[in-house]
Amino acid sequence: MKAAIELVLLFFVAIALTLVVGVRDAGISDVWNALFAFDASDPTHTVIRSVRMPRLVAGLIAGAGLGMAGTIMQAVTRNPLADPGLLGVNAGAAFAVVVGALITGYSDSGMMAALAFPGAAIASIAVFLVGGARSGSGSPIRLTLAGVAINALLLSLVSAIILSRAETLEIFRFWVTGSLAQANTRPLEAMFIALLIGAAIAAIIAPRIEALALGSSLARGLGTKPGAVQLSALLAIMLMTGAAVAVAGPIAFVGLVVPPLARRIGRHVLRSELVVSAILGGSVILLADTAGRLVVAPAEIRVGIMTALVGAPVFIFVVRRLKPGALT
């Protein structure tokens, strides 16, 4: 109970900081007025409504999507190193959008961003096949290396495409590390709906995933079809990761850092873990983004770099805690 209260508190602090902190100083009262007593002539109100609100929404979509996708991936693969960023699912989504924009010549927001979903799906299928997850022999190291390879390949291709179109460095950075700075140009409403559908699927199949964790023969005895559950999990991961990448670019490590904490707070019940990882993921992204705007102000550090600075040490910590036998 105490953990739950702290979690909610953290969430509201993260939201408040996102709206208050920035180049233009704004107090809590300014934020309140901008939202509920909007004055179009006040530039502070305009900044809060047109810049910081989209940023907040994009951060919440990305954080909740990546956090929940990470939790589902870790539960299905029983691999504590599974993360949509590290396994190349994010890169697949980014790659599909960039290729779509290249072929059609249209800009990458709106309909083009929907290509993030098939991109995420194909990359996840590829990484699970190469990583050996299907044959049940998937080990953390093999899955991680498959992710490293798919990431390297897709991000190299994304770089080549973007550099060949002579786009600005800002667009390049968005599709390679992720950022919330372009939030007001991203299709937020559509991606929010996609995230909700993905989360609903995840919540529905959560008990069956837990049954699978007991072993597939036992799960079958309890009336669970492993294939159907894995397919639904893939669908949920695709929707949640695709939505996250479409609004914020490929951000790594959120899906790695959030699930272990969610397991503790959610008391190892997958449905509660999902709720916790959505709130925690959103808070992590918002706090990372706010920190990135503060440390080198008036410049800003993209949120994907901030999550990597925190996430890489966590990655090493998780590797160290793996039992030596679990690696092979």
């Binding site: 190193l81 953390p140 190291i141 991680t144 290396l145 490293v148 590390t177 790594a252 490590f253 080198v296 410049a299 800003e300 550090i301 993209r302 770099i305 990597a308 600075l309 996430g311 890489a312 040490p313 990655f315 090493i316 590797v319 160290r320 793996l322 030596p324 690696l327 092979t328």
Partner: peptide, 25 residues
């Protein structure tokens, strides 16, 4: 185990790349 070394190395690589990007800004 060589595998632990490789995984920890991957983690160090992630961290060093993130620090590099940080410094570039």
């Amino acid at each position: 185990s060589p595998l632990t070394l490789i995984l920890v190395g991957i983690g160090i690589g992630f961290f060093a790349s993130a620090v590099s990007s940080f410094l570039v800004i």
